[in-house]
Amino acid sequence: MATNELSDLIARVALKDRAAFRLLYDRTNAKLFSVALRILRDRAAAEDSVQEVYVKIWNNAEKYTVSGYSPITWLAAIARYDAIDRLRSRKNQAVDLDEIAEVASDAADPEAVSVETSEMRRVNSCLNELKPDHAQAVRSAYVDGFSYQELADRYKMPLNTVRTWLRRSLQSLKACLER
């Protein structure tokens, strides 16, 4: 998926062009829905989230053009924040592992939007410079929406200890990314 093409579609959506909105939906819903599913671990919740996300995209597309974001980063950030806010405000945060497995086995979309490979190598190679546990914690937080509490449970450590080493990991990561 060409970045320019997505940018153009968002620019047209900012003009309330409904056909562009549908195209943008066609091209990005698999990416954004999978992000929501992975974080929310619940199909119905992810469906609610993705609807809200496209409403936000329609209403805020005008802000995109001046934001300086690459299109997929902007779109995915809307999806991730909506999902994370739903997850964090949800009372029962029990993780249903069966649900994750079921979700992960769904068919992939051939039209999937993916990120440039050089950038991918960069964040991944920088994560590889961290201790494996620490790298995994950063990934799980970003991809699975794990909170500090969930990370603390998983690594059987006090929450504050986890927070300290995660922050330290983020600092090392940043130093590497900016090298």
Partner: peptide
């Protein structure tokens, strides 16, 4: 930070919404 992290989202297999 968002631009740094976005490649990690490629680890998630796309799932078409209903």
């Amino acid at each position: 930070w968002e631009e740094h992290f976005i490649p990690l989202s490629d680890d998630i297999a796309p799932v078409v919404a209903p």
